[in-house]
């Protein structure tokens, strides 16, 4: 039998197998469900931006997609701390002013990156399934190198999470027995948990350090965030559906479609 030496040309060749994958499981199911889930969120988000009303006076419910409301076009009670810094010159839907921040946070999130690279861009659609693209440069150049600004969106998301928590507490104060108050509270908890479980948050707390023992408080914070971080994917989905659900619920109450006493 002939011997193949280490520098022989035949050793430079991979096994020639003509199919994209030999996987026999339903590898296509996860990217398909992810595609449908993220698409539903996008479609709902576009609809919600242009939908009115989004505020329930008295109960002080405000739909999360329209909070904080920062223009004079917002109903007076819906404005954050009664302020309207964008004045009356701004006439577009108020959601457009702020949705770029939580949207950018999710767009550049390490989990969502995985999910849409797989399900929308098929790069790759699943592990050990050949991707359809002839060339790949990853996140080394524009536009994908911009994913590196994720931590700035994280800072903004902390503020948005605080505002949604404030909205929920305000609703609870005004209507403690209202179903909407508790839905808003659950949504705020999930949004804050998702935000704090972020990989950038983990890095900022103490991930950048090499000597944990010299920074015990930061290390404890890192340990806490690391535990949350292990649940980043389920928190991403749970908070995405909760924000859609809470938003839709408030709009239905605001339109009078849901009108029972404890709504």
């Amino acid at each position: 039998m002939s011997q193949t030496t280490s520098d022989a040309p035949v050793r430079r060749q991979r096994a020639q197998i003509k199919v994209r994958t030999l996987r026999t499981d339903r590898w296509w199911l996860a990217p398909l469900l992810t595609f449908l889930g993220l698409s539903a969120f996008l479609v709902y988000g576009v609809w919600a931006i242009f939908d009115t009303p989004y505020y329930v006076p008295g109960a002080e419910y405000i739909a999360p997609f329209s909070s904080p409301c920062l223009a004079t076009s917002c109903p007076e009670g819906a404005r954050l701390f009664g302020l309207a810094p964008f004045g009356d010159w701004y006439t577009l839907p108020p959601g457009l002013l702020i949705l770029g921040l939580p949207g950018g946070f999710r767009l550049t999130c390490y989990y969502y990156r995985k999910s849409y690279y797989r399900s929308f861009w098929l790069s790759p659609p699943a592990c050990a399934v050949q991707e359809p693209h002839g060339k790949y440069t990853g996140e080394t150049r524009l536009p994908l190198i911009m994913q590196n600004i994720h931590r700035y969106f994280f800072y903004a998301a902390i503020v948005i999470g605080a505002i949604l928590s404030y909205d929920a507490i305000l609703a609870l104060v005004h209507k403690p027995l209202g179903l909407g108050s508790w839905i808003l509270l659950l949504n705020a908890v999930l949004i804050v948990a998702y935000t704090l479980s972020c990989h950038s948050c983990r890095h900022i707390t103490a991930g950048r350090l090499n000597h944990f023992s010299r920074h015990p408080v930061r290390y404890r914070a890192w340990t806490f965030v690391s535990k949350l971080n292990a649940k980043h994917q389920p928190l991403a989905w749970a908070s995405m559906f909760s924000v859609m659900g809470a938003d839709f619920y408030v709009r239905l109450v605001a339109k009078g479609i849901i009108a029972f006493p404890y709504a």
Binding site: K114, S123, C127, Y136, T137, G138, E139, T140
Partner: peptide, 9 residues
Amino acid sequence: LGYCNITKC
């Protein structure tokens, strides 16, 4: 490192 698109395979 920039080539990695964190698809976790």
